[in-house]
Simulated scan of single mutants.
Amino acid sequence: MTAAAQELLDAVTAELAPDAAANPLVPRVADGTANRSAITALALEQRSVIPADRRSFLHLAARSADAGETECETFFRTLAEGETLAFDRLGALVAACGVDKAGADAYEPRAGCQAYPAYVAWLALNGAPADVVLALSANFAAWGAYCATLADALPAHYGFSQEACGFFAFFAEPAPDLERQALAAVGAGLGRGLDATGSALRYGKLLQRYEAMFWETLADPARGL
């Protein structure tokens, strides 16, 4: 079952991999041509995204526990713990953008950026846990790659300190424990009849589209890129 779960995870991740042109912002940060205002907006949007995702993951963990899906519960609790650690690193990024607490609290999140956590909340209420594990795992591959690029580019082109980039470095780091937990959850899901061509794949496609919408909103020229 482990081999089948790995094959399924690899196949879905490959199928859902975003096109190189799907992210209009990160490549411009990578070459130093993005406006700092877009980077500031990215940091401020995450102040809403991270706590929302954490609550969604905790709800998914509780649903998994109620259903006796212990492998899924473990995966989602690890995700929630990770969001807590990421949020602890976010303050340094916001400060490096020159935004104080009052300014951060006054920031108005953009609908296009908050569509992703809104959909994760929908999944927390409606998605079968194993389906959500598979969809999220595929999406995280793209997110981690974006964060790795940002962690390298912000110090090189914008003078950000390593501490300020800790938020992105955290998500860019390999997470072997989480990968093992995802594999266990997907394997258990296969034993219960998980069908990757059904809900899991649809969830993953929507997550990738909302992910793209996040970056497109930040890169909107009218918003100051």
Rank of each mutant, 00 (worst) to 15 (best):
N139T: 12
Q162L: 09
L150G: 03
C147F: 02
A156P: 02
A141T: 13
A145W: 00
G159H: 08
L134C: 09
A138H: 07
A141M: 11
L134D: 06
Q162A: 14
A138R: 08
C147V: 00
N139F: 11
C165L: 06
A148P: 01
L150Y: 09
G144T: 02
A145M: 00
Q162S: 11
L134S: 08
A151T: 01
G144E: 08
G144V: 03
G159I: 07
A145D: 08
A153T: 04
D152R: 11
H157E: 05
Y158T: 06
L136W: 14
Q162E: 15
S161K: 04
S161W: 03
N139H: 11
A148D: 11
A141F: 12
D152A: 14
G159Q: 04
W143M: 12
L134M: 09
F160A: 05
H157W: 10
T149Q: 10
G159V: 06
W143K: 03
Q162F: 02
A148K: 13
L136P: 05
A135D: 02
Y146C: 11
H157N: 12
A142Y: 10
P155K: 05
H157D: 06
S137H: 15
A164K: 09
L150Q: 07
N139A: 15
F140R: 14
A141Y: 10
E163K: 14
Y158G: 04
L154H: 09
T149N: 01
C165A: 14
C147A: 14
L134Y: 09
F140G: 07
Y158M: 04
Y146H: 11
A151D: 09
A141Q: 15
C165N: 03
F140C: 06
Y146A: 14
A151Y: 05
P155W: 01
T149M: 03
A153R: 03
A145T: 01
C165R: 01
A156R: 14
L136H: 13
A135C: 09
A156F: 02
A135R: 12
N139M: 13
S161V: 09
A145P: 00
A138G: 13
C147T: 01
E163N: 07
A164S: 12
A151F: 05
S137T: 15
A164N: 12
F160Y: 13
A153L: 02
L136I: 13
F140D: 15
A138E: 12
A151H: 10
A135T: 07
C165S: 11
L134G: 07
E163A: 15
Q162N: 11
F140W: 13
L136F: 13
A141C: 11
Y158N: 06
G144R: 10
A135V: 09
N139L: 14
A142D: 11
